[in-house]
Every structure is written in C-alpha cells, then in structure tokens.
Design a protein around this nucleic acid. Structure first.
Lengths: 158, 158
DNA sequence: ATGTATGCAAAGCGTTTGCATCATG
DNA sequence: CATGATGCAAACGCTTTGCATACAT
C-alpha cells in the first residue's frame, strides 16, 4: 500500500473523494502489520474519529482491495483480515490466538508442475501455515493443555 | 473419509446415532470430488430425502470435520466447502467458475525455514492455487473479456 | 453545483442454536 | 426407555445495501 498522501492523490485522480474518514482509515492501515479485521480497523479509527460508521470502513476497505492497495485475507476465521503488504508473501497463523505473521516467499517458488495444472492458467497461490505461536506454546505447557495434534480445524482448550 | 458403512460403525462406537439422514449425507460425500458447499450437499441429499433440514446437514458436516473424516475448505468464497479427501493435498480453484480440483502435494514438502517460523510450532499448511480453468479460458477468449490480470480477488466480467 | 461519501438501519448470507418432537441403540 | 438427532425458526456474526443528508471537488 502506498503512503497516505499518495493514496489520496490516487483517489482524487480516479474521481474518488478524499474524506477525513478515508484519510484516517489509510493511516491506520499504513504499515500495519497486525492483519486487522474490518472491526479492528473500525476500533482503531474510532479513537480519533468516534462517529465514523462501520459501513464506511467496510466500503473503504473494499475500495482499497479493488484498487489493489491492500490484500484481503481469508484465514478461515469467518471474517476477512486486511494486509497493506501486497507483495508476494505468505502467512503463518496461530491456531490458538489467531495471531498472524508474514513469512517471506523465499525460494519456495511454489510452482505447479504442468501435469498438475489440469489445463488452467495459473494466476497465483495463497499459502497459509498453521501453528502455535511462542506465547501460546508457553501457556499450553503451563496449562497442560491437550497436545496440539488433532487441532488446526478446531483449536485446543482455553 | 471412510466408506459409509465403516463410518456408521464409527459413529455407533462413539455413541453417535446413525440416522437415515446421516447415511444419506455420508453417501453424498463418499468419493465426492466436487468440493461441495453445505448447500450443495443439502441439494443432493434432498433428491432422495426431500424433508431433510439444512441444519441437519450443517450439524453432520461439523461432526464429520471434528472426527477428521472430512476437511473444511475456506477458499475465500464466504462459505465453506467440504472435501472427503483428507490426505495431504492442495487445491486449484478457478477464479471465474469457482470450480476446484485437487493437486497432489508432490515433492513440494512446503517447509518453513527455521528462521521464518518465528518460534512457532508448525502444524501444517494450506495451499490454494488460483487460476482460470480450461472451460473459462475458452469463454474468455470468445467473449474478449478483460485479460485476467488484475483479477483473483475480484474475478473478471461475465 | 454536481456527484460521491457518509451514517444509519435494515437486509443479506452462511451458519449455529433453542426447543419440542422423534427414533436409534 | 434414555439419549441423542431432527426440523423448524429464530438468532448470530460479518458484510452489503438503500436512502436521505452532508461534503469534496
């Protein structure tokens, strides 16, 4: 995602309007590595703009996704998360606390052998690693929680 | 997923009951490679059991997922799809028609370099390839649709 | 001044749940 | 016969939309 000011220019050049609400949303997203949900963006914006509507947040996020400025992530949580980091990278999600960190693509070229493409034109791939983050691992050992084996689908206890 | 009869035995041995509804659902899923949504399973079961409730389908699918008999897939469509094929494999989804085919894991061991694990205990990974299937490619060339470039996020025209 | 964005509330969609009834084991 | 499953409808969480008002350009 571009910097807020450049984004504003882009919006204007497309005939879209730059409202205070949108500027606030841009600023919350800029450099945000927490992969926030729409609701979390809403909460963050409300701090400095208490009267903003959740619908406005949703509409603006959709606009940004359509413009290719942010990515919408579906990590099987029943809601979308948003990532201003749009270059190719993958995600590592903790099945207990739902925290998400970026992982570089590295050399995992992640190509599909021609015989496995089934005639498709391949556009890209999404990779999500599932695991347990250091913090949750600690709590697990303390709480003697069931071993995180059959999980990842339905996370462990609390 | 096991065969229907073996699944019935498993259910009974766990104190779960084998009802006609469940048996029908098992049979629709058995060997089903279409990655159906709950609604699609519902439609298929209704053919031979018109009075079944959608809630029953949902409840049974959830049970099967919890037992590890089927996988729940989240392909960013806003609804879950179900796969009776539970051994490690990935998916290739057509961004236009939403069709999904399995792709073998192959040698794509898909491991995360230790320095990229950020201290997590890795449990697994989901890989989804996005592309355009042969059928849609054909239609695209006929309809002179916009090149499928900026898509995969919001699919092309109709 | 024009057209787009906003806030609000309602609707939409997929999914879950509460409850009375039914049927499996 | 006891427990768990069913169907129905209501509730749920996330997201979109309709509409009248407000504001950026």
């Amino acid at each position: 995602m571009q910097r807020t000011e450049q984004l504003c220019d882009k919006f204007r050049s497309l005939g879209l309007k730059v409202t205070p609400q949108r500027r606030h949303i841009f600023q919350v997203l800029e450099g945000n590595g927490s992969h926030p949900s729409a609701d979390e963006v809403y909460d963050r914006v409300k701090v400095s703009m208490p009267d903003i509507s959740l619908a406005t947040v949703y509409n603006t996020l959709r606009e940004l996704v359509n413009l290719g400025e942010i990515r919408s992530l579906d990590l099987g949580e029943g809601r979308s998360r948003y990532d201003p980091h749009t270059d190719g990278h993958h995600h590592l999600s903790c099945v207990r606390c739902r925290g998400v960190v970026d992982v570089a693509c590295g050399t995992h070229a992640l190509e599909l052998a021609p015989e496995q493409q089934h005639g498709h034109r391949i556009l890209g791939a999404d990779v999500t690693f599932y695991g347990v983050c250091p913090t949750c691992l600690e709590q697990e050992s303390v709480n003697q929680t069931a071993p995180s084996l059959r999980m990842w689908g339905v996370p462990a206890s609390d």
